[in-house]
Design a protein around this nucleic acid. Structure first.
Length: 640
RNA sequence: GCCCACGUAGCUCAGUCGGUAGAGCGCGUCCUUGGUAAGGACGAGGUCACCAGUUCAAGCCUGGUCAUCGGCUCCA
């Protein structure tokens, strides 16, 4: 039998042996410098038996792939430690995940923080013992006997296909039903840290038992782990909730209610600036602004389909004089009414109606998270009514709109997620129109392909009225945000009776595109806070400049400068309390882009000294020069 | 909604064994008139999230409620 390794000599060996044996015979060094291999695109470990000639690519320690094998073994080490300390713990599953691993246990009493450190210590012992991992192929009956005390393993066993190879990994006193891959021994996995305990439903199903999940992080190298831990620390600092507090942008209040943000003056500036940006962009793209009320009668939502399919996300109705009113979860029904308010012809299409209306959704209490998931939100919303022929162009124009925004914000990494329906949800999660679903999904797919847009397709995440595109972006600290959304609606226009007269004089139902390229203002600002770490580009910065007179005798000159900047529209403050050092520190921690310092020298030469928040100093300028420089920077939306 | 943890001054947090509450920042007043990341002094500020219970006595122990955190799940 022949094993081919790209970049190395082929190995001749007897059939049926493990990769480890083959490598050992050829070159021991290969085992030391690698953690596993890929075979036909799948990760395998050295324990794997090779039946026939194979081409394997070895995975080096520093390869991205290495982490997955490493972390998988790490999760076994943790489970082993848990089993030693809590012999009654029932094992569920324990996979490797991005940057870490977890294992789910069924235990009588939930783990405490002290338990975590005890487990971490025990893991150290397991590592030190350097127990060899051994792989063993077993039959179904053997597996049943071995795991007779582990109900979750038995359940997994029953669901594995007949004829599938079952394998067992053993290291010392621990054995787990597992398909691998694994490292050679527990001594190889040293760099880890347990992070948290969390409840997790068995199979993610809230009807099933809640298990205890322990999360950990692990990296093949010390540097990798340290880097990741430093990243987590940085993430803590950039957290939008923390910065929102520090910069006085927004807050939540118990008496007002969970998920209902209150925007302070400085945070409101951010919202206003975003709105200004959106209005300008949309005016240029042929949108018209509309305004509609925050509440709506139940009859409308019955017709639109919100009540049948979306009720669990809506606040319960208020009843007045026998009529039920709901807080609006979306703007669409109101916009549909505006579409239908006059007779429309094909000449009116596409008709684009936009509104930054505040919507209310009842998100489950456990879902709330800072500005990311709130219950009152301002959507960057618009509805485009068009013909089927116009669909592709309109759809792609929306995609271009958000890539324009992404460019402005310097978002480079993003993924388009194309969410389609899944068969089982028809009539429950989604309206029951199988043919229309397929047809519309095809239309979206074609538009994406013809626009040359990269996307990933995912079944089961569509809106109730149609397929959608979400754009996922990552903030500087790696948090994932679903910002833009672009959805096709083949249902509501028909349900609420929207019509236009075609060129042939026939009544037709328009198609509707729901789109929110900036998602909700709440989430977008949450993202921008983390993206910029609170140091917003000048055009967004709540305070763009602070004037700092050195002594009281410079106050008059300072006031003049402030007034000059105010005149040209700069958000400027004057700070004349306390010492200069103190005021500079204040401006610095508030991340104000420009600090304008003036004392005797500046008064005499009619100039201003400029300190940037980066610590850098610009050459002194006259008041007019400062004003025009700032106006230019702001209008061009440059960073600083 | 469910599981864990947590809730003390406007903010960040100490508070030992159950004996009735502290710091720093911020805020106010005064002194200081300063040259690029905290000048100094004094002062005000608390129903220890809320409701019950145990106890001679509860910030601390027990139960419940609410909020927040990390997850499960869902979503923009």
């Amino acid at each position: 039998m022949k094993i081919t390794i790209p970049g190395a000599e082929a190995i001749e060996c007897e059939g049926g042996g493990s990769l480890k044996e083959a490598l050992l015979a050829a070159d021991k060094q290969l085992l030391k410098s690698h953690v596993g291999a890929t075979l036909d695109g799948e990760r395998i470990d050295f324990h794997q038996n090779l039946a026939a000639d194979a081409v394997v690519e070895l995975i080096r320690w520093d390869a991205e792939e290495a982490g997955w094998i490493y972390r998988h073994s790490m999760s076994h080490v943790m489970a082993q430690a848990v089993r030693r300390l809590f012999p009654d713990a029932k094992l569920a599953i324990g996979p490797a995940i991005q940057n870490g691993f977890y294992y789910d246990f069924d235990v009588e009493a939930p783990f405490t923080t002290e338990d975590l450190s005890a487990i971490e210590k025990e893991m150290k012992r397991v590592v030190k013992q350097n127990l060899r991992f051994e792989r063993q192929e077993i039959s179904r009956d053997e597996a049943r006997a071995l795991f007779s005390d582990d109900p979750y393993k038995l359940e997994i066993l029953e669901e594995l296909e007949e004829g599938e190879n079952l394998s067992l990994y053993r290291d010392g006193d621990f054995a787990d039903l597992c398909r691998g891959p694994h490292m050679l021994s527990t001594g190889q996995v040293k760099h880890y840290k347990l992070l948290s305990v969390a409840g997790a439903y068995w199979r993610g199903d809230e009807n099933l038992k809640m298990l205890q999940r322990i999360y950990g992080t692990a990296f093949p190298t010390r540097e990798g782990l340290d880097g990741h831990l430093a990243m987590l620390e940085e993430a803590r600092k950039r957290d939008h909730r923390r910065i929102g507090q520090e910069l006085e942008l927004f807050f939540f209040d118990e008496e007002v209610g969970p998920g209902l943000p209150l925007w302070q003056p400085k945070g409101t500036v951010l919202i206003e600036e975003l709105e200004k940006l959106a209005k300008e962009t949309e005016r240029n793209a042929g949108y018209q602004q509309v305004r509609t009320p925050h509440i709506c009668k139940d009859t409308m939502y019955l017709k639109s389909g919100h009540l049948p399919y979306y009720a669990e996300h809506m606040y319960p109705p208020m009843e007045m004089e026998g009529v039920k009113y709901y807080l609006k979860p979306m703007n669409c029904p109101h916009h549909h009414k505006i579409f239908g308010s006059v007779s429309r012809s094909y000449r009116d299409l596409p008709l684009r109606l936009s509104e930054y209306g505040t919507c209310y959704r009842y998100e489950q209490s456990g879902e709330l998270f800072g500005l990311m998931r709130v219950r009152s939100m301002q959507m960057n919303d618009a509805h485009i009514y068009c013909t089927i022929d116009q669909f592709e162009e309109e759809f792609l124009a929306v995609c271009n709109m958000y890539s324009g925004y992404f460019k402005l914000f310097g978002i480079e990494k993003y993924v388009m997620r194309f969410s389609t329906h899944d068969q089982e949800g028809l009539g429950v999660k989604y309206v029951n129109e199988p043919d229309l679903w397929l047809k519309t999904e095809e239309m979206v797919r074609n538009a994406l392909v013809s626009g040359g847009i990269n996307f990933v397709e995912e079944a089961g995440e569509a809106a109730f009225y149609g397929p959608k595109i979400d754009v996922e972006v990552w903030s500087a600290i790696g948090r994932e945000f679903s910002l833009a959304t672009n959805q096709v609606d083949f249902v509501q226009p028909g349900r609420v009776g929207l019509k236009y007269v075609s060129a042939e004089g026939k009544e037709e139902t328009p198609l509707c595109i729901h789109r929110a390229p900036l998602g909700t203002h709440e989430r977008t600002i949450g993202f921008l806070i983390e993206h910029y770490a609170g140091a917003f580009p000048v055009w967004l910065a709540p305070v763009q400049a602070v004037v700092l007179p050195i002594a009281e005798r410079h106050l008059e000159y300072a006031q003049k400068l402030r007034d000059r900047l105010k005149e040209v529209g700069v958000r400027v403050e004057l700070a004349d309390d306390n010492t200069l050092n103190y005021r500079i520190r204040q401006a610095q921690t508030q991340k104000v882009p420009y600090m304008l310092v003036l004392g005797d020298r500046e008064v005499e030469s009619s100039t201003v000294s400029i300190r940037l928040r980066t610590g850098e100093n610009l050459d002194p300028m006259s008041a007019d020069e400062v004003a025009s420089m700032m106006v230019d920077t702001i209008s061009s939306k440059m960073k600083c």
